[in-house]
Design a protein around this nucleic acid. Sequence first.
DNA 1: TGCATGTTCTATAGATCTATAGAATTCCGC
DNA 2: GCGGAATTCTATAGATCTATAGAACATGCA
Lengths: 205, 205
Amino acid sequence: MKQESGSHRYQEQRRQAIRSAAAVFAEKGFHGSSTRDIAEHLGIKQGSLYYYFKSKEEALGEVCLFGIEDYVHRMQEIAASDQAFEAKLTATVTSHLSCYRERNEALKVYNDERLYLPAGRRIKLKQLGSQYRQQLEGIFEQGMESGVLRPSVDCHFAAQAVIGLCNAWGDIIVRDPDINMFDIIQKCTDLLLNGFAERRKVRRT
Amino acid sequence: MKQESGSHRYQEQRRQAIRSAAAVFAEKGFHGSSTRDIAEHLGIKQGSLYYYFKSKEEALGEVCLFGIEDYVHRMQEIAASDQAFEAKLTATVTSHLSCYRERNEALKVYNDERLYLPAGRRIKLKQLGSQYRQQLEGIFEQGMESGVLRPSVDCHFAAQAVIGLCNAWGDIIVRDPDINMFDIIQKCTDLLLNGFAERRKVRRT
DNA sequence: TGCATGTTCTATAGATCTATAGAATTCCGC
DNA sequence: GCGGAATTCTATAGATCTATAGAACATGCA
């Protein structure tokens, strides 16, 4: 019945199925979507979906993986490049927000629905997630070593803050296509580097 | 069958039901939770839940409202107080994160599940949400006028950034009870005011 | 064309889930 | 303790939903 090795055509069709699942999961959430919804989006009947996925959970797993894959890949390229700290930070924010702007519903699904995966299926995702965070931490360490950042910066906190900030704006960007993304990118990096306070005064909180 | 005016006892029991719904929705999501789950958490049988809610959607609506209510209320007090800008900012971050630390599952539900409410039920929530954001914007305007903030700050962006940052850390705090919340509060406000960059250098991105 | 394999369809079992109706029980003022 | 109101229970209708089995159709190679 089902192709084991995976012909070229099969892989191509399966990718489309993953995209459909991503679109539906992003809109209605994992539990709010039915396999019928996904199949309809793809233009086939409900039962036929099981030619591509062993279960609904497998579909979710594939969507999450698809969503985070090239996102992590881009970060790897940025971290490995020989740019200065500030360029890397800007590139990170740009990459992160671009993923949302490109209607990457899969990334939204990764963020919002991955917790519904059984523990076994989450291992790979956790790996990729912490790889991303660690590389971002590495960028901040580079920034401290080069003297651009204050020595007191907590790199773990900083990395989480960047991710949180970008995810928050990513959500807003997805819902409002009229937003000027470059404006947001510029303001985010400016916030991360300089904060909102007037620079003349020295402040300690 | 059902109490119309709402005796004291009824209102009290209903609050408990809302709390149970909040706990279950927060863990499994709206569509992932069944009315049986909620009833079990509350210690009654599935059908009995409809003594307190006309539908599952009504329960979600009440949870969301409950989650955002005192959160907005606290912001109102902060905004109306006569503190200086920096104190208000710290108070805002503290209030926001405290809501999460107090296991306010309802706030998480408001953030993650409110989109599944029908449009009619969302009106009040939207009002409260934008009230919160506007008051936060007002605080930033105060900070600009008093000269603490740079004149170039975009108050709308700033307010969204604070909310996004606090939500991101709120999520982390909820999952990891060992985190030192005061450390996070201090680092968040420091980031918002000063950024991560060494202050001696003047940076423009 | 004919055969084998790949892809989709129909139909359905079996397990949910929401919401309702009415019976049973508990609570509380008298 | 009695009687009415408040609260909870049981049972179920009716509408999902996931996953499977096997038939039907399509495709491509000999």
